[in-house]
Simulated assay, not measured.
Amino acid sequence: MSTPLYQLKAEFFKTLGHPARIRVLELLSEREYAVAEMLPEVGIEPAHLSQQLAVLRRANLVVTRKEGSTVYYSLTSPHVAELLRVARTILSGVLAGQAELLADLKAAQGKTKPTA
């Protein structure tokens, strides 16, 4: 029996569920990166970065190529970068809605303050 699509999607999103992995994918959305180039950008220990890259490799979201002793990473599909752009758009809308709600709450609070 095959795994339902919704379950596969849930596993996919679990893979994306770590800030370091999202940061790596954002970087790779721009261009190919060597591991050493990613370290200062991601801001985690080399061993942790290696672990996160391994998770992304197992999920077939990134691929590697070796040039001498340098390992370069890139996205397996431009759709990954597109997904990150869509997520940014969704979050921008959510945050804009929250900012509007906060402004409304502050305005309402200003109207109900007792005067001395």
Rank of each mutant, 00 (worst) to 15 (best):
K113T: 13
L8P: 00
E32G: 10
G93S: 09
K111E: 13
L105P: 02
L91T: 09
L27C: 15
T115L: 12
Q51Y: 09
K14C: 05
L5C: 05
R65M: 06
E30Y: 12
A116V: 15
A107W: 08
G17L: 07
A20E: 01
G17I: 00
N60L: 08
A59N: 02
F12D: 01
E30M: 12
V55A: 03
Q7V: 11
V86W: 06
E82P: 03
Y73R: 01
L83V: 04
Q51C: 08
R88A: 15
A99W: 08
L95F: 08
A81E: 01
I90D: 08
V80A: 01
T64H: 01
V86D: 05
S69T: 15
A34F: 14
V94R: 07
S92D: 07
K111Y: 13
L84C: 04
A96D: 12
V71I: 15
A10V: 07
L25R: 03
A96K: 15
P114Y: 12
V42M: 02
F13H: 06
H79E: 14
Q51D: 15
V80D: 00
L28T: 00
V94N: 05
G97D: 12
A20V: 06
K66Y: 05
L5V: 11
S74H: 09
L84M: 04
M1L: 11
R21G: 02
H79A: 14
A34N: 08
A99K: 15
T76D: 00
E11Y: 08
A108R: 15
K66A: 11
S50Y: 05
I90T: 08
L61N: 02
